[in-house]
Simulated assay, not measured.
Amino acid sequence: MTYDNILSEFHEGKTIITINRPKKLNALNRSTIQELHEAFDKANQDPKTKVIIVTGSGEKAFVAGADISEFADFNVEEGGKLAAQGQKLLFDFVENLNTPVIAAVNGFALGGGLELAMACHFRVASTNARMGLPETSLGVIPGYGGTQRLPQLVGKGRAMEMIMTAGMIDANQALSYGLVNHVVEQEGLLEFCETIANKIMHNSSVAISEAIKAINANYKDGVNGFDIEIKAFGDCFGTEDFTEGTTAFLEKRKANFPGK
């Protein structure tokens, strides 16, 4: 499939999606959000793809924010619809994918860019990365899940400060906050993410999918995460991956998971 704003490449079990609008610092417009949805959906449905990595083109930005020119003249109804559609199409969609998604944050991740990174299952940042939610400096608040996911990751107080000040934090501060898992030099960022992906790929894709579902359940209103975990745990016993994994363990060999 050919895209105008992104690139998608499959290599040895991994799909790498690159937001490719370098002249706009990879800002998210509606067309890019739609293309990202399609690329993530396609990769998630491909049984050969075991891990998805998303990054930005160039050396300056992962995603420097939303394309403000698209919504600067929106009214109340249009603004609400923009947030609802974006969350459904991309941000909530990515968070709930069965396939693990790693954000390779290679520069500025601001506004919608940080919200996209936070929707991924975890994040790795380059040393030059800068992150923040500057929306209050524009007279608005984060609308793609930022007010919800940032406190989950860094705590309420730090999230309040970041959103109220509209400031940026650097990669090491993001690491100390727990916003990213690792910080590496930019030239080695994708290679490092692929190394983690390779470790993930040794394990059962079916079990990983169930683990994502169970972990996410803890952050959903009205859902008992323990109940979801119990059901998911039990469901694993009916899979071919469970049979292979336990048999391989007892036979003292590496498992060759069928992904079923």
Rank of each mutant, 00 (worst) to 15 (best):
D4F: 08
N5Q: 04
I6Q: 04
I6Y: 09
I16W: 01
I17M: 05
T18S: 12
R21V: 07
P22R: 09
K24S: 12
S31E: 12
Q34R: 09
E35K: 04
L36Y: 01
H37P: 03
F40W: 02
D41H: 13
A43I: 02
D46H: 03
P47D: 09
P47A: 05
T49P: 06
V51H: 01
I52Q: 00
I52H: 06
T55L: 04
G56A: 07
G58A: 13
A72N: 10
F74I: 03
A83R: 04
Q85T: 07
L89A: 09
E95H: 08
T99W: 00
T99C: 08
A104L: 05
G107Q: 11
L114Y: 01
L116Y: 07
A119E: 07
A119H: 03
A119L: 03
H121Y: 07
F122Q: 02
R123N: 14
V124C: 06
L133W: 03
I141N: 02
I141T: 10
P142M: 02
G143V: 13
G143P: 06
Y144T: 05
Y144R: 03
Y144H: 06
G145M: 03
R149F: 01
R149M: 11
Q152S: 12
L153K: 15
G157Y: 03
A159I: 02
A159E: 00
M160N: 10
T165A: 12
G167M: 05
I169L: 07
N172W: 13
Q173A: 11
L175T: 02
Y177A: 14
G178L: 09
G188P: 00
L190Q: 01
E191W: 07
C193W: 03
N198H: 12
K199L: 10
S209H: 05
S209A: 14
A211P: 00
N218L: 11
D221I: 10
D221S: 11
G222L: 06
F226I: 11
F226R: 14
I230C: 11
K231Y: 05
A232V: 01
F233C: 11
F233N: 09
D235R: 14
E240F: 03
F242H: 10
E244R: 13
T247P: 06
F249D: 04
K252V: 05
R253Q: 14
N256F: 05
N256K: 14
F257I: 09
F257T: 08
